[in-house]
Amino acid sequence: MQGVQLLLAISLFTLLFSFASASDPSPLQDFCVALKDAKNDDAVFVNGKFCKDPKLVTAQDFFFSGLNVPGNTTNQLGSKVTPVNVEQIPGLNTLGISLARIDYAPSGLNPPHTHPRATEILVLLQGTLSVGFVTSNPDHRLIAKVLYPGDVFVFPVGLIHFQFNIGKTNAVAFAGLSSQNPGVITIANAVFGSKPHFNPDVLSKAFQLDKNVVTRLQSRFG
């Protein structure tokens, strides 16, 4: 009996250790400023980016300017996301954080989307937003809230979420994300604008839509 308990304990420890070791490792240096490419064999490739020689790092590698400038919302959605991630600030590489400014015209929408690698925390500076996210299977529960200036809302990692300007004036929000490169999957674009397109029969059955409706949507998003 004791042998079985010992074996069970070892198995449990192994399982927990495997989970723990699967998480992102802590940085082993102060920073790893990203390079777009490497010109010598000594470059180190960390988290999808080459690292700049620390001796050549400057303040500019940790700097971005322009988030005071409103984004252009003259588009079909009436919104504009201005990201500040590792592509804009190379010093964010390996630091696990980024942010974005989102501008919304009246009735502007940041459409349903997900960030596969990040939780998002959003603070509204101006205007009135209806925001929310949908829980995973099997509940698909919509958790939604109306935000006013100074309000904060969190969108858990990987869940479909949105923001919609329900006010009569422009709205502005800033969002922090728990990844240097959170990624974005906009649901409508991904489903109906994939390259190449999904077989229309697949989407017709999945969304319970007439096939002609699916092909029209594919032509619009394609």
Rank of each mutant, 00 (worst) to 15 (best):
Q2S: 10
G3Y: 11
L7Y: 06
L15F: 15
S23Q: 15
P25R: 05
S26M: 15
S26A: 08
S26H: 13
L28C: 05
Q29H: 10
A38T: 01
N40Y: 12
V44R: 02
V46W: 01
K49L: 12
F50W: 14
F50I: 01
C51G: 09
A59Y: 03
Q60M: 07
S65W: 11
G66Q: 02
N68E: 10
L77Q: 15
K80W: 00
P83V: 00
P83N: 06
E87M: 07
Q88L: 15
I89W: 13
N93Y: 01
G96N: 12
S98D: 07
D103C: 08
Y104K: 00
P112D: 07
T114V: 05
T119Y: 08
V123H: 08
L124G: 03
S130Q: 15
T135D: 15
S136W: 04
P138C: 11
H140P: 04
I143N: 12
I143R: 04
K145S: 14
G150P: 06
G150W: 02
V154H: 01
F155E: 04
V157K: 15
G158I: 03
G158H: 03
H161W: 08
F164R: 15
G167S: 07
K168A: 07
A171C: 13
V172N: 05
A173M: 05
A175F: 05
A175M: 13
L177I: 00
S178W: 05
N181K: 08
P182C: 13
A190E: 00
V191S: 14
V191M: 15
K195F: 01
H197M: 05
P200G: 09
V202I: 13
V202P: 13
L203I: 09
F207K: 01
F207C: 05
L209W: 12
D210G: 06
N212Y: 07
N212H: 14
V213S: 11
L217P: 14
Q218S: 11
